[in-house]
């Protein structure tokens, strides 16, 4: 049965694919959500890269389609529509890691290149830029352990319940914490990666908590956590930050005032531009590994903090627009088993 469908689909779309040999590529970004600063940065980075590529005569267009409130069912329908529209490549930030697999397979069968990033899908036949979210958890715990070897109480702020990212970061935290038994998680709230939600959630749980040594976060929630501690009059513990402007700003403020120190880490929204250039590499017939692991962007020096604070718009997220050169180099490094090249300035 499935074969019949495939042959029909391939036949239906063969014309569009075949005739695209000489013309400029048409690439589309299917995005599931646009309602926070990270996604806004992601979109504007994508537009920057797309303009570069259009000017260079590489692509014809690179529109963006966003679903309402991260609905996987809606994104699946949207993908089908994009397939029918005959785009050469679809770059995908998915509402669900599993639910889009069957539609993406349809797209691949129709000869469309699909590159997924950030919230990547699990389909192994698609090209995937996988953010090492476990690393985000691991890195946080290691930093805390280095700062407080004697151990202490930990408050964990999690993301949106029922999502993959939330689970992966949490998994990284739990697995790494097992190595440091001197730390104890005394509270866990959901901050939904949003400052205001995190502030409310932390303020709600604070009265019932003992002294907190460190607050592990998922990004977007650090500022709210600091504000909640401030409002309660308690000493502000080590709060891990997530590269948002307000998080970097409050870190800088406290650093200047009291010498407060932390690190800030998050996947750079510019990952959309890595996926963009990767799709072009694949379209140009290059051999690109199906799975590439991306590490989050970590601000761990005061120099980086100063620079990113300067370069990030108010309300935005520290980001990097990756270039075609960088992506080509990165792909070469991955194939050679080397670490990725240093971030472009």
């Amino acid at each position: 049965m499935k074969r019949i469908l495939l042959s029909i689909l391939v036949a239906a779309l063969a014309v569009g694919v075949a005739s695209s040999g000489e013309k400029k590529w048409r690439i589309v970004l299917s995005n599931d959500y646009a309602g926070n600063s990270w996604r806004q940065s992601m979109i504007s980075d994508w537009k920057t890269a797309a303009e570069m590529a259009i000017k260079a005569g590489i692509i014809e267009e690179a529109p963006i389609f966003t679903t309402n409130e991260s609905s996987a069912a809606e994104q699946a329908a949207q993908l089908q529509s994009l397939i029918l529209e005959g785009y050469d490549a679809i770059v995908l930030n998915a509402a669900s890691p599993e639910a889009l697999n069957s539609v993406v397979q349809d797209a691949l069968d129709a000869g469309i290149v699909v590159v997924s990033f950030d919230n990547a899908i699990t389909l192994p036949t698609a090209w995937r830029l996988i953010t090492d979210f476990e690393y985000m958890g691991r890195r946080q715990v290691e930093y805390v352990a280095q700062r407080f070897p004697q151990g202490g109480n930990i408050l964990e702020i999690r993301g949106l319940a029922g999502t993959y990212v939330n689970d992966a970061i949490h998994r990284g935290i739990v697995e790494t914490l097992a190595k440091y038994p001197q730390f104890k998680v005394v509270g866990e709230v959901h901050g939904d990666w949003t400052s205001s939600v995190a502030q409310k959630a932390v303020a709600g749980i604070l009265p019932s908590l003992p002294e907190i040594t460190a607050v592990l976060t998922q990004g977007g929630d650090g500022y709210g956590a600091v504000k909640a501690f401030e409002a309660s009059g308690r000493k502000i513990p080590l709060v891990l930050m997530g590269n948002r402007y307000d998080e970097m700003e409050i870190w800088k403020e406290m650093l200047d005032k009291t010498g407060y120190d932390t690190i800030s880490l998050s996947i750079a929204p510019g990952a959309s531009t890595i996926a963009f250039w990767e799709a072009i590499e694949v379209l140009n017939g290059k051999d690109v590994p199906k799975e590439i692991r991306l590490l989050p962007y970590v601000i761990d020096t005061h120099a980086k903090l100063e620079r990113d604070l300067k370069n990030t718009p108010k309300g935005g997220v520290a980001s990097i627009v990756y270039t075609q050169d960088w992506v080509q180099k990165m792909i070469a490094n991955v194939k050679a088993g080397l670490p990725p090249p240093p971030d472009p300035e």
Binding site: N68, E69, S70, S71, A72, A73, E74, A76, A95, S96, E98, A99, L100, N101, S102, V103, G162, T163
Partner: peptide
């Protein structure tokens, strides 16, 4: 259709 289970699949 999606061949998968997702606690937030049918949003909206």
């Amino acid at each position: 259709l999606t061949t998968s289970a997702d606690p937030l699949l049918a949003k909206n």
